[in-house]
Write a protein that binds this DNA or RNA. Sequence first.
DNA 1: TCTAATTTTTAAACACTGTTCAATTACATT
DNA 2: AATGTAATTGAACAGTGTTTAAAAATTAGA
Lengths: 207, 207
Amino acid sequence: MGVAERKEREKEVLREQILAAAKTLFLEKGVEKTSIRNIADLIEYSPGSIYHYFKDKNEIFHALHQGGFQQLMSRMEVLVSIPNPMTRLKAMGSIYVEFALENPDMYDLMFIKEAPMEHVSSSNDEQWKEGFGTFNFLRATIEECIQEGYFQGHDEEALSFLVWSTVHGMVSLQIRRRCEVVLAQRQGTIVKDGLNEFFSILDKQSS
Amino acid sequence: MGVAERKEREKEVLREQILAAAKTLFLEKGVEKTSIRNIADLIEYSPGSIYHYFKDKNEIFHALHQGGFQQLMSRMEVLVSIPNPMTRLKAMGSIYVEFALENPDMYDLMFIKEAPMEHVSSSNDEQWKEGFGTFNFLRATIEECIQEGYFQGHDEEALSFLVWSTVHGMVSLQIRRRCEVVLAQRQGTIVKDGLNEFFSILDKQSS
DNA sequence: TCTAATTTTTAAACACTGTTCAATTACATT
DNA sequence: AATGTAATTGAACAGTGTTTAAAAATTAGA
């Protein structure tokens, strides 16, 4: 009897519907300003129903959070074809910034928003394979750079954190609109310009 | 008749009380989770009263926001005694990171939290003297660095943004706890280690 | 096929939230 | 002391996340 399986599948469909509606609204109005009732309205179910598919609003947030990492990770896949680690590192930076600026709200969700991270550290490690994996890919690339003579005397782990921080810093200042007051005139290009300055500094790290 | 003056002064006192209570609660539970009723309870006034001193919750946020910039700015004052611009730039980074890690919630309020920035760009520019001033101090320092032969071929403005982004990136990843999953073992030192890697890279920028 | 058990869905309720506003209270001036 | 003004209040409004008892729909067994 495939009844249980079919019901399971139907349940999954509604779960996905909730997730899709939540994503639409989260990206449109922000997590905080999206209510369970808003989500329920969009999928034409009662607010209470949602609590049969997700423990609470945070669980919805986390499900989307995870999806974001998968997206970013898949964008990174093209990098494996770049043999030179320094070229790869810079391409990685470009992809990261591109992803962030094209999906600012998803990026916000993933790296900026205040989120109950205690759930994270205690829960299933597999959930974090993606986030963990992306950072480890950066570490591996930088490790390769060091082996090829770049970044002499640097600590691979701390340097990886620094590189991540640099791109994260630029896009998060942009996304949370901290450049507007201080860099009004070149608002549109400042992140790309900053990234190029970064590349220029990286290029000097061989000697 | 100093009556009007006294009343003005008394009004100011209550305004400060509201601000102090709001700061306590904002830093304790976060802006979002602090209600007007919470603030009113703490100062033993009715919720409605607060709306005679502040237009809305955002105006309270902004008042504190401004105070934070003054704090940071005053910490930066010791830097004027450092003649070498590169030494000064690094000291600036240290002070910035120190301020952020010692006052994570205030830093969050100033540079990370989602805040209605439209109020900002339209409102009195004087309010932003501090934030603007701090960034301009960074720009002036980097300008000096360039004049002394560092950062050859770099654009002063974009480079300033990059430097700001780098320190902001590190502290904001730490404050919003994005290091925990990925850098669990050296949680406590990673920002300082990252900053040192940054300094080490800056030192290579003279040639 | 009819009934019993189970799952899914709902609407109402609870305790909150930011904000507004008419009514009350407190107070300074005439 | 009466008047006018400013400060304060508490109730009300429309919204929030979440819980829960009841209703509806669906499945399984006889």
